[in-house]
Write a protein that binds this DNA or RNA. Structure first.
Length: 965
RNA sequence: GCAGGGGUCGCCGAGCAUGGCCAAAGGCGUAGGCUUCAGGAGCCUAUCCUGCAGAGGUUCGUGGGUUCGAAUCCCACCCCCUGCACCA
């Protein structure tokens, strides 16, 4: 089968599916429903194989369930909300050549479209159109009547309703929020908008307002406000520029670095600078600890960076290695102090003040760690390491000492948050945000932290909401189960989420002019919109008719439908139909995505369902899988390893692409797309098609032996395994068994039967086989199905049922005998390097079976005692003549039977004796063929046996003796 | 830093929750044979080491331990990956 015919087959079946509408699902009261979903893809680029991986798993599940007789709904939509589409079109408008080249060469956008991409909606529509073609070609069994994009006014009405509800219930709050901010763009700078500083987030400093005089403070920045009790001095950089500024129009003057003043402007502080001066001006002055009213000096610290926080640092030499090192330096260099006009006596007298007790350290942990690590001075690179180590230990294990006021005896970890709140109440502390590393915007501007005010939040901190979300998780099926703890952790971890933005595509916040619902916040409940969007699309319901009352009726059954119909012009029948359709399909049974969506989208989805729907409409199942790798690396357009779905289908065909993806991984493992493997798979499918076609063309029949029963027996296990795996969304395991293991079984059967294949049995087996492959490779299976003479679609044929009656342990054991003897013989040939001319096998004598089965029975119950067994055997007149041999055999048999699995022991006991000679005799041709030698079978009891090396006596049940010459 | 997930015979990957047909599935790769005008594809066989009789030896990140017996259970250590907020 050449590539062109693969494409032709795909086109043929795609057209047939569409004409027959087999994937369009409407409510059917007599059928059980399954609704599966996949997070809609964002349309600033083409669908790629990463999308296809997660979605193929959804499709395989949908197809499996459909074949099992469920009424399956698998809808799809397109995400346009957000900033990237706008950003992309702007880059094109600006003539960003590298970017345009990527669109042209990677995405494959034709020139005439590319030029129109300056319009972001054109761009989104282009990718949406292309995406739909690709999603169809890959064979996703989607009901396209429910399609929409997130900028459709009808969808936005749904979002308005959703947010109105959330707000009414108090889940939406307003407040402030720190963001990384580009002063030039006047917008937040997300990771993707950064030239450098990816992953950097604002850090919160506590400012302790040490008093210089009555209305002037030195706001020293710290992550450890509890150390206020251990302060000995403040560090000021003598060479840095500081300002004295009036803050927030009250009477407080702050002394801070010039840089800090600029930053605080963005953090809801109004700054009026009164004077500018060098840090050295402050040296030697005293200030007051606002908590204890003790007085301390201001000392020079060149290590103080005016660019970090306020440029003012307070010193806690007992617990901060840097402070101790700096203090020691100064104490050793009185001349520097004199030069700066400070009395060295003052510095000499400073002693560290110990305030934290921590295991493994004495009075002054900072002093100790500096000595332990042999740190020379503050420029030593190990000083940083020492700081981190000590902070960590003190935070996790440290307890505050008696000199810490009301906090004495408390652990640092437990008291820190409360302490900050208390200090703020006392008006001796404030907060400032700063970045731990430099962040530079794409526009090359240095970013700062800005506090956004009047920001709208989804209040995921709300403990009642969290509780409810956990209830949703508790009743949900999660694939794989290991992710459940992850979900609980993420629910706990989520806090207020800024759910509105001022730019980008999206639904305007209904109650607040100028804000748009943020992109991750508008995609949490839309699965419920699929259930009714068919009606909206088909009846051209105008957006203005979709009032909150309409949605209240549809989703909550609230309100008077007659009244609603009157005001909206939506007929009562239609309102009812939508309500009914929602009730039929909801909740969804499976939503599957990559694991990156666990902490955001999937958790949000859980939260929102908890808030807006009653328990009977909570999600029933969520599936999570790994992130697709390409040739061992993450897939990125910039890395040049980006593979579009269209490109993959063009090259390998839909079936190979699907299976290549699904064979990659399951569970949380990251699948690896390897072009060689997918190519190989494409060849495999050609071979498979030939293999199957040949069987279909072969009209001969043949006799029934145990091998037919063996094949059917095998197939039952395969059906069981594939069904159970698919049920658990283990698509890789399921496909592996369905494709390779079944194939191996069929091959083995054909080999064993040689020219005597029973085509009737094989034909049926193959039909079962391709049914099991249909969820994975639907096109090939439709084609093969039609070759069998069937007229319907295999896509809607009944899934194979496990049939207990076809289980045949005897056939299984008989075939085990053959494979075992085959392996043993090959092993001997390998060891002896004989090229065999003749093989002779001798099956065990009847009396050996007697003792074998007896021992087997004993070992099964775990009490095979040699003495007892021997007594038994010697009392048996049939065995008595062989008692000498039996004495030797018993321990051997105990050893071999002990190693058998319980399952096999049970089977062997159930069958009792198998007629080995006949079984072997029937395999004669096969064995001859396999070894290219004459083969003879005897029983060791045969008088006329050929046995030149007297091997026959070594024969055992299930292990005939072998002679090779 | 916080949270989560891993290290298996050339590679990818099962197995490990319920220790024992585990020298360890399957796929890929590699080698040999068959088929073919040739190439590719396909089919068969082999693929840790040793072995002139169906066997033995050493393996499952490292080092210990429990057990008659450990890839599987326990402890310690080393290494790797992913996510972390206004962004899809």
């Amino acid at each position: 089968m050449s590539q062109t015919t693969t494409t032709q087959i795909e086109e043929k079946w795609l057209a047939k599916w569409e004409t027959a509408h087999i994937f369009e699902a409407d409510p059917d009261p007599v059928k059980q429903k399954i609704m599966v979903t996949f997070p809609f893809p964002y349309m600033n680029g083409p669908l790629h194989v990463g999308h296809a991986f997660s979605a193929s798993r959804v499709d395989a599940y949908a197809r499996f369930k459909r074949m099992q007789g469920y009424n399956v709904l698998w809808p799809w939509a397109w995400h346009w909300t957000g900033q990237p589409l706008l950003g992309a079109s702007q880059r094109i408008a600006k003539g960003d050549q590298p970017y345009i080249r990527v669109l042209r060469e990677v995405d494959g956008v034709p020139e005439e479209h590319l030029q129109k991409f300056v319009d972001p909606k054109y761009m989104a529509q282009y990718y949406t159109n292309e995406g739909k073609i690709a999603a169809k070609r890959i064979g996703f069994s989607v009901d396209w009547r429910r399609e929409f994009t997130t900028v459709w006014p009808t969808f936005q009405k749904f979002i308005e309703w959703q947010y109105k509800n959330l707000k009414d219930q108090g889940y939406v709050t307003q407040g402030t929020h720190p963001v990384v901010w580009c002063p030039k763009d006047q917008s937040p700078t997300g990771d993707h908008d950064r030239q450098s500083g990816e992953g950097v987030t604002p850090e919160e400093y506590t400012l302790i307002k040490y008093k210089l005089d009555n209305n002037t403070v030195l706001p020293a920045a710290t992550f450890r406000p509890e150390t206020i009790y251990g302060i000995t001095n403040i560090w000021i950089n003598p060479d840095a520029t500081y300002v004295e500024a009036k803050i927030n129009n009250n009477n407080e003057n702050w002394i801070i670095s010039q840089e800090a003043a600029e930053k605080l402007e963005e953090q809801e502080k109004s700054i009026t600078i009164k004077r500018v001066f060098k840090g050295r001006e402050l040296l030697g002055k005293n200030f007051e600890n606002p908590l204890t009213h003790d007085k301390f000096p201001i000392l020079p610290g060149w290590f103080v960076d005016p660019k970090t926080a306020t440029g003012i640092v307070y010193s806690v030499p007992a617990h901060a290695p840097f402070d101790w090192l700096a203090l020691k330096d100064l104490q050793q260099k009185p001349e520097i102090l004199q030069e700066l006009g400070i009395d060295p006596q003052i510095v000499q007298q400073i002693k560290p003040i110990s305030i934290i007790k921590v295991d493994g350290f004495g009075e002054y942990p900072a002093v100790e760690i500096v000595e332990q690590m042999g740190i020379k001075d503050q420029h030593d690179s190990k000083a940083d390491q020492a700081t981190k180590e000590l902070y960590k230990k003190e935070f996790h294990n440290g307890k505050l000492k008696v000199n810490c006021g009301p906090y004495a005896g408390k652990s640092i970890r437990g008291v820190k948050d409360q302490l900050i709140i208390d200090f703020k109440k006392l008006d001796i502390a404030d907060t400032m945000y700063d970045l731990p590393e430099q962040v530079i915007c794409r526009c090359m501007t240095h970013c700062v932290v800005k506090i956004l005010s009047d920001q709208w939040f989804l209040n995921y901190s709300n403990p009642q909401w969290k509780e409810k979300a956990k209830e949703v998780i508790a009743q949900m099926k999660i694939y794989p189960e290991t992710v459940r703890t992850d979900f609980y952790a993420k629910i706990d971890w989520l806090k207020e989420w800024a759910c509105a933005r001022t730019t980008g595509f999206g639904t305007p916040v209904p109650w607040s002019e100028g804000w748009i619902i943020e992109t991750l916040s508008d995609s949490t409940m839309y699965m419920a919109f699929y259930t009714i969007n068919k009606h909206i699309n088909q009846n051209n319901i105008p957006p203005q008719a979709l009032t909150p009352e309409v949605f209240d009726y549809i989703y909550h059954g609230k309100g008077d439908k007659i009244q609603i119909s009157k005001t909206t012009n939506i007929t009562i029948e239609l309102l009812e139909a939508m309500h009914e359709e929602f009730l039929y399909w909801y909740p969804f049974d499976l939503r599957n995505s990559a694991k990156e969506l666990v902490p955001n989208h999937l958790s949000f989805c859980i939260f929102h369902h908890a808030a807006l729907f009653p328990p009977q409409h909570w999600p029933k199942g969520i599936g999570v899988n790994g992130m697709l790798m390409v040739e061992g690396q993450g897939m990125h357009k910039s890395k040049g390893n980006f593979i579009t779905l269209k490109g993959a289908i063009d090259k390998y065909g839909a079936d190979a692409t699907r299976c290549g993806l699904m064979l990659g991984a399951e569970g949380m493992d990251d699948p690896d797309w390897r072009a060689d493997n997918v190519e190989e798979l494409k060849n495999k499918f050609e071979a498979l098609t030939n293999f199957v076609s040949n069987i279909f063309m072969d009209s001969r029949q043949s006799e029934n032996t145990f091998l037919e029963r063996w094949l059917q027996n095998r197939l039952q296990y395969r059906i069981l395994e594939v069904t159970e795996s698919l049920q658990e969304l283990k698509t890789r395991t399921a496909l592996q068994i369905a494709l390779f293991e079944v194939w191996n079984d069929l091959r083995w059967y054909k080999q064993r039967k040689g020219s005597n294949v029973n085509t009737v049995v094989l034909f049926e087996a193959v039909k079962t086989w391709i049914k099991m492959l249909t969820p994975f490779a639907p096109y090939m299976c439709e084609e093969l199905w039609s070759q069998t003479g069937e007229t319907g679609f295999i896509s809607v044929v009944s899934w194979p049922q496990f049939d207990e009656n076809k289980i045949d342990v005897e056939a299984e054991e008989q075939e085990n005998l053959i494979t075992d003897i085959l392996n043993d013989t090959q092993n001997i040939l390998k060891a002896t390097k004989i090229t065999p001319k003749q093989l002779v096998f001798y099956t065990a004598a009847a009396w050996k079976w007697q003792i074998y089965l007896k021992i087997l029975e004993k070992t099964k119950t775990g009490e095979a005692k040699i003495s007892e067994l021997m007594k038994d055997f010697s009392n048996n007149p049939e065995l008595k003549p062989h008692i000498k041999d039996i004495a030797i055999l018993v321990p051997k048999i105990i050893k071999t039977t002990n190693r058998l699995s319980l399952n096999r022991k049970t089977n062997m006991l159930k069958i009792q004796k198998i007629d080995e000679k006949t079984v072997m005799q029937n395999a004669l041709d096969f064995l001859k063929d396999r070894f290219g030698a004459e083969v003879t079978i005897y029983s060791e009891e045969d008088q006329n046996r050929y046995d030149p090396k007297t091997r026959a006596s070594t024969a055992m049940p299930y292990q005939p003796a072998i002679y090779i010459q």
